[in-house]
């Protein structure tokens, strides 16, 4: 086939297929704006998914359980984002409740419509509430995996703000946070509590006792700071000193104890029988039951947790 033949062939193809090429454009302009969705399509979010396909994953979770009349799926996207009518008419019109532009209090008010009470009663006035933390700061609802609710990944969410603790959980003495066996929410209620630092129970000690109940006593011999607050001696987020202690022995003990007898000794590695408060278990080499002991032994001066 010569050049003329090729030209003729292409012309023939174009003659037949040309109109097909323009057909989509013709149809596009002939149809005008996208057909208006039905009320049902808007209500249940099907129409929204045309543009916000990723967001539709929310319906695969709790929010999308149709049999639960409280679930947002019963109303659709409008339940949290407001009336979509104007936005549907023109995407340039923002949704009434556009989370990325809303104040934290307004965002939280949307979630609180359903999620309040029980463990969230003390959200008002909590440190998070006062610092403009919103529900969506930590929780992702348009995803199949909310990292804040996974013990393995929850700490990553918390560390977005709590950076000191991010470093501390890698210290040699630590809780098994990295392994996902202990999560921040095992000790803290991020939705507010009546305890300091939003601890899960009413105070620090009661929170620690949930796992370390053997420390509660009361004992025949009690150690005052143990009864008052575990955090006087321990940093639960991680330390280089053993047993999550804020400092090593004898420095920790010397912060309270009078320097009489052996208690004011200089820390040294050349330990002797009366000077062994630095190595091994430090002062606990003798005072082994430092959290208190219930040993009632009637032995002179047996008040120092040695038995």
């Amino acid at each position: 086939m010569g050049d003329g033949g090729v030209t003729r062939t292409l012309r023939a193809i174009f003659k037949v297929a040309g109109p097909l090429f323009f057909l989509p454009f013709v149809l596009l302009f002939a149809s005008g704006p996208r057909a208006q969705p039905s009320a049902d399509e808007v209500r249940d979010g099907r129409y929204c998914a045309n543009c916000h396909a990723d967001a539709a994953v929310i319906w695969t979770g709790k929010h999308g359980t149709k049999a639960d009349s409280r679930a947002p799926v019963s109303v659709g996207c409008a339940m949290c984002h407001g009336d979509p009518s104007e936005h549907v008419k023109s995407p340039g019109n923002p949704m009434p409740q556009r989370f990325s532009k809303m104040a934290s209090a307004d965002k939280n008010a949307v979630c609180n419509t359903c999620h309040q009470g029980s463990t969230r009663i003390h959200w008002p006035g909590s440190a998070h509430e006062r610092n403009d933390v919103s529900c969506s700061s930590c929780h992702k609802v348009h995803t199949a995996h909310d990292r804040a609710r996974d013990k393995l990944t929850q700490s990553e969410v918390c560390f977005a703000c709590h950076k000191e603790q991010r470093a501390q959980i890698n210290r040699p003495s630590r809780h098994p946070v990295r392994e996902g066996m202990v999560a921040c929410s095992d000790c803290h209620n991020p939705h507010g509590s009546v305890g300091p630092a939003m601890v899960r129970r009413d105070n620090v000690n009661d929170t620690c006792y949930a796992c370390h109940m053997e420390k509660r006593g009361p004992f025949v011999r009690t150690h005052q700071p143990v009864q008052e607050n575990c955090a006087i001696c321990h940093n639960p987020h991680g330390t280089t000193a053993p047993n999550l202690l804020k400092q090593r022995s004898p420095f920790l003990c010397q912060q309270c104890h009078e320097p009489t007898s052996h208690r004011g000794q200089v820390a040294t590695l050349s330990g002797t029988s009366t000077n062994a408060s630095t190595l091994a278990r430090g002062c606990l080499n003798c005072h082994t039951n430092i959290h208190g002991t219930n040993n009632p032994a009637n032995i002179s001066n047996e008040r120092t947790f040695r038995r």
Binding site: D54, V57, S137, T143, A144, H145, L152, E156, A160, E179
Partner: peptide, 26 residues
């Protein structure tokens, strides 16, 4: 306040198990 996904090293189990969830986003 802004919350971001942050990568962090986790323990052996996390490392080995990571990636077994259904695909959504990287």
């Amino acid at each position: 306040m802004r919350s971001r996904d942050a990568f962090r090293l986790t323990g052996i189990a996390a490392a080995l198990l990571a990636g077994l969830a259904p695909a959504q986003a990287p």
